[in-house]
Design a protein around this nucleic acid. Structure first.
Lengths: 139, 139
DNA sequence: CTTTTTATGCAACAAATTTGCAAATATTAA
DNA sequence: TTAATATTTGCAAATTTGTTGCATAAAAAG
């Protein structure tokens, strides 16, 4: 169970102003336990303006609460950062899985390996696996 | 130097009809030697309709000439496939690098490693490194 | 060179995202 | 606790991105 005080604490610790909308949105994200898109939020929060949802995702991302997951579908998807992120340091060191069947994008526990490219400065790594997820796979 | 006959041969070998537009576009992509976006094409080919550019990217991708690279910017980016791709078999087994300075996305020679996730069926893997590219990096 | 197939341009549409601005709300400082 | 300041929200409107239908033009096949 996620408590109101905990949600507030998380917002505060990321230097985000505490508003009713943000509390509800963050609680929803925490509870969802999967990556979310603007569509998910629009479906869930009919009372909040679309623009506000976009801006919330942006500020959450800027302040290290969420990370944007690259996708070739043209729909931005966001996942929760691990506790270590803030506006200065943005690690999202886990890999992602996109299911071709249900479309869900999950954050997996597996960490990304280190890549070294001579002459390049690597600051972040995104790994997106595609295929059939645990829920959709048929043996 | 890329010759007209070579460009035609490549189109033909991917079962793509040869048109003036496609020759110009493919030549541009081959010459660019980096990944391209619809924006790049719009800038370069003012005489071609936007819809045609979209459709060209789609058919090039469907026929294994290009691959779509996931990106979190909301702008689809495409890279040349290695010679081995066709409409049936689509391998793009190399990793990508996106430069935070110049925005360019490059295909690197390095191959993606194999990821195994218990319970999941992995069919494709995308790796996008982010940082500062060879051209922009300052020592 | 005629037929068949496919690509192109145009107009219109649809979806996704951004911007400016005034009003409302949250935080800070007194 | 209140007044001043800073930020967020909602609304309307614009922009950007991508798609669809259809007539015409062009390419490939016979």
């Amino acid at each position: 169970m996620i408590r109101y005080s905990e949600v507030k604490r998380i917002l505060k610790s990321h230097n985000l102003r505490i508003t009713d909308g943000r509390i509800d949105i963050l609680e929803f994200i925490l509870r969802a336990n999967k990556t979310i898109s603007i569509k998910d939020l629009e479906k869930e929060f009919k009372s909040l303006d679309r623009v506000t949802l976009y801006r919330t995702l942006t500020s959450f991302t800027e302040n290290g609460l969420l990370h944007k997951i690259p996708d070739d579908s043209g729909h931005a998807t966001y996942g929760l950062c691990h506790n270590t992120c803030d506006s200065k340091n943005h690690y999202h060191d886990h890999i992602h899985f996109k299911c071709n069947e249900c479309g869900t994008i999950e954050c997996l526990d597996q960490n990304v390996p280190a890549f070294k490219v001579p002459g390049y400065l690597v600051k972040a790594t995104d790994v997106i696996l595609k295929g059939v997820c645990k829920t959709c796979v048929i043996y």
